[in-house]
Simulated assay, not measured.
Amino acid sequence: MNANRKLGAASVPLTDEHGEVRELSAEDFARQRPTTDFPELVEILQNHGKLGRPPLPEAERKQRVTLHLDRDILAALKAEGKGWQTRANAALRRALGL
């Protein structure tokens, strides 16, 4: 069933064509259903705990360290955006021939 529909009744979509959520009305909240209406979802959430990627085996996990870097090096890494720590790790691997 479409998440934007009440059983048997049409409603205004909750999102626009860009995926932006509109301001919700009292009618929107009145149409919401309790979690108990979705027992399979409740079971998944209760049995799997945290959502997301499963943990890596110990040997493959990265180790947290504190590292002091020159400001210009850090600025250059961060200038490329998200993932700067992964890029720093890759650069160190290359530099060390690993």
Rank of each mutant, 00 (worst) to 15 (best):
I44D: 02
T66G: 04
A88L: 15
E23N: 09
K78T: 00
V42G: 01
E43I: 02
A10D: 14
E27H: 05
L96E: 05
H48P: 00
R94L: 13
T66Q: 08
R5S: 08
A79D: 03
F38Q: 01
V42A: 02
R5N: 10
T36Y: 04
E23V: 13
N4D: 15
P39N: 03
G19Q: 01
L51E: 06
M1W: 08
A30P: 00
A88M: 13
F38P: 00
D16N: 03
H48E: 15
L74F: 09
R64H: 08
N47G: 08
E17K: 11
K82P: 05
R31N: 10
A75H: 14
L51H: 09
A10S: 12
K78Y: 01
P55R: 15
S11C: 11
D16Y: 04
T35K: 11
Q46R: 15
L92D: 02
T15L: 13
E43R: 06
A3F: 11
V65R: 15
E17N: 06
A95K: 09
H18E: 04
E80K: 13
E58V: 11
R93N: 05
T66I: 05
A10K: 13
G81E: 03
R5P: 00
F29I: 13
G81F: 07
K82A: 14
E58Q: 12
H68K: 14
I44T: 09
A90I: 07
K50W: 11
K82Q: 14
E80L: 04
M1G: 09
K78N: 00
K50P: 00
V42E: 05
G49Q: 07
A26Y: 04
I44G: 01
A3C: 07
I44P: 00
V65Q: 08
A95Y: 12
R71Y: 06
E58H: 08
A88H: 03
K82Y: 09
P39W: 12
K62Y: 05
A9F: 13
L96G: 00
F38T: 01
R94Y: 08
T66F: 10
G52R: 09
F29P: 00
L69V: 11
K82E: 15
A95E: 14
N89K: 13
T35G: 05
G8D: 04
D28N: 03
R22H: 06
I44N: 02
G97W: 04
P13G: 01
R71I: 06
N2G: 03
R31E: 10
Q85T: 14
L98F: 08
S25H: 04
V65W: 12
P57V: 07
G52N: 07
R61G: 00
L98V: 13
P39D: 02
D70T: 03
L56K: 15
E60W: 08
A76H: 12
L74E: 14
N4E: 13
A79L: 04
F38K: 02
E40H: 11
T66M: 05
R5K: 12
V21F: 15
G8F: 08
P39K: 06
L67S: 02
A76M: 11
A9D: 12
Q85P: 00
V21G: 02
E27C: 01
L41H: 11
L41V: 10
L41F: 14
T66C: 01
G83F: 09
D70R: 15
A91T: 06
N2A: 06
L74P: 01
A3W: 09
G81P: 01
D70M: 05
P57Q: 09
H48S: 08
L74A: 08
P34V: 07
I44Y: 13
K6F: 10
E40I: 05
L74I: 05
D72T: 11
